[in-house]
Amino acid sequence: MVRVDGNGNGTSLIRVRNLDKKYQRGSEEIHVLQGLNLDVEQGDFVAFMGPSGSGKTTLLNLLGGLDVPTSGSITVAGDEVTAMSAKKLTGWRARHVGFIFQMYNLIPVLTAFGNVELPLLLTRLSKAQRRKHVETVLDLVGLADRMHHYPRQLSGGQEQRVAIARAIVTDPTFLLADEPTGDLDRRSADEIMELIGRLVHEHGKTVLMVTHDPRAADRAHAVLHLDKGVLVESAGEAPRR
């Protein structure tokens, strides 16, 4: 169960306490996140919504160890992410976080296979093991027959599915998705959300997603609104499907 009151029990996979993030823009100080609390359990699917500039992506970056908070703490599976050095964070990210971006961010000179294999090159897996992992996840996202295609030879929806395969190929602890359907047509967006839903319900993945799309948010177990740097839970929490 997702909580934003800071009273989650000790079983939370992700625990955020009193998270503050301030930016300096010229002489102006922008307080993006203000004392934010969050508890997410294993297998939760959380959607963050809110107006542009409300700090959704900043929160995602902090949860993914890409940015450091001004104060407060983030703990994932017992590891305090906010206390890690930059070097340690890099390794932690490789093991625990899968990122899905709005613009897919595939490497254009690599095939779908090459893109999905990238995170595995940091592991000690043999070439044959890597191949098996990549083929498995590409099959899972329905692109087994497109693995030797380059991004330019794929549709937007297919590119996003490759990006999802890249995010899950190392079997990370949780997935962070930043507007995964933001650049897709309705049909492709539905397919992507269907796929993310399957990852949650059939494979027990924990997903935290930023979205502007209410239809995408509808699929989440919980929809949280960021307003003036504070998380507010929506009226009703969606049932786990």
Binding site: K87, T90, G91, R93, F99, R166
Partner: peptide, 16 residues
């Protein structure tokens, strides 16, 4: 720049 940032996001160390 963007691709290098993606590699770093995926966990590629600075030295790599």
């Amino acid at each position: 720049t963007g691709e290098l940032a993606v590699l770093k996001t995926l966990g590629y160390p600075d030295l790599s």
